[in-house]
Simulated scan of single mutants.
Amino acid sequence: MNKIFRKQQLTPYEADYAQWCAEQGALLREGRLSDLDRENLAEEIESLGRSDKREIDSRLGTLLQHLLKWQFQADGRKTGWLLTIREQRHRIKKLITESPSLKNYPHKQLASEFDFARLKAAEETGLSEEDFPADCPYLVADVLDQDFFPGVPWSSDQLVRE
């Protein structure tokens, strides 16, 4: 985009976010740093890191929820649970590979994400919250290990097909 923008012609951040992003990118490429909306641009860049953290939080919570269901409702194990567990692990690993500074983030969030995962697992299984451990029984290394599945051993032919 090689448009030349005059300061008064720039789209305000609040008016059209997509257009604002395109214009700010063009200004950066053109080296027109004095014309940048520095405050909003800085906020957007900072939010990118927060976005990755929120995604890890969400995926970690879903992963813990499914590990709990896997362990405590072994007779109802479903193919979908297995696929969800594997996908969440894969996506978290990918986020950490892209942003290695987040390597320790899952460890920091394990306890808080476990609390909510426990509530959701109880709701979905019909089991009582007390049927699940109060504190996370898993190590982060195990939670993220593609080969770790808690509870009684299993084979794919035992899974309920959905």
Score class of each variant (00 low, 15 high):
residue 1 M to T: 12
residue 2 N to A: 12
residue 3 K to M: 05
residue 4 I to Y: 09
residue 8 Q to F: 00
residue 10 L to H: 05
residue 11 T to H: 06
residue 12 P to K: 11
residue 16 D to Q: 07
residue 16 D to H: 09
residue 20 W to R: 10
residue 23 E to W: 00
residue 29 R to L: 09
residue 33 L to G: 11
residue 35 D to Q: 15
residue 35 D to I: 00
residue 37 D to H: 07
residue 40 N to D: 12
residue 41 L to S: 09
residue 44 E to C: 04
residue 45 I to M: 13
residue 45 I to W: 06
residue 46 E to Y: 07
residue 47 S to G: 12
residue 47 S to F: 02
residue 53 K to S: 08
residue 55 E to V: 04
residue 56 I to N: 05
residue 61 G to C: 03
residue 61 G to E: 07
residue 61 G to P: 01
residue 63 L to A: 10
residue 65 Q to M: 09
residue 66 H to Y: 12
residue 66 H to M: 02
residue 67 L to M: 14
residue 73 Q to W: 04
residue 75 D to A: 12
residue 76 G to L: 11
residue 81 W to K: 06
residue 82 L to S: 06
residue 84 T to C: 04
residue 85 I to G: 02
residue 87 E to L: 06
residue 89 R to G: 07
residue 89 R to L: 01
residue 90 H to T: 09
residue 92 I to K: 02
residue 93 K to C: 02
residue 93 K to T: 11
residue 95 L to H: 10
residue 96 I to W: 03
residue 98 E to Y: 05
residue 99 S to I: 03
residue 103 K to M: 05
residue 104 N to E: 13
residue 109 Q to H: 00
residue 110 L to E: 05
residue 111 A to K: 12
residue 112 S to I: 03
residue 112 S to K: 11
residue 112 S to Q: 09
residue 113 E to I: 00
residue 113 E to L: 06
residue 117 A to R: 04
residue 117 A to V: 02
residue 117 A to M: 08
residue 119 L to K: 13
residue 120 K to P: 01
residue 122 A to H: 05
residue 125 T to K: 07
residue 127 L to G: 03
residue 127 L to N: 08
residue 129 E to C: 05
residue 132 F to M: 04
residue 134 A to K: 15
residue 134 A to T: 15
residue 136 C to E: 07
residue 136 C to K: 05
residue 139 L to S: 13
residue 139 L to N: 10
residue 141 A to D: 15
residue 145 D to H: 13
residue 149 F to K: 08
residue 150 P to D: 09
residue 151 G to P: 02
residue 155 S to E: 14
residue 157 D to A: 10
residue 158 Q to H: 08
residue 158 Q to I: 00
residue 160 V to R: 13
residue 160 V to N: 10
residue 162 E to N: 15
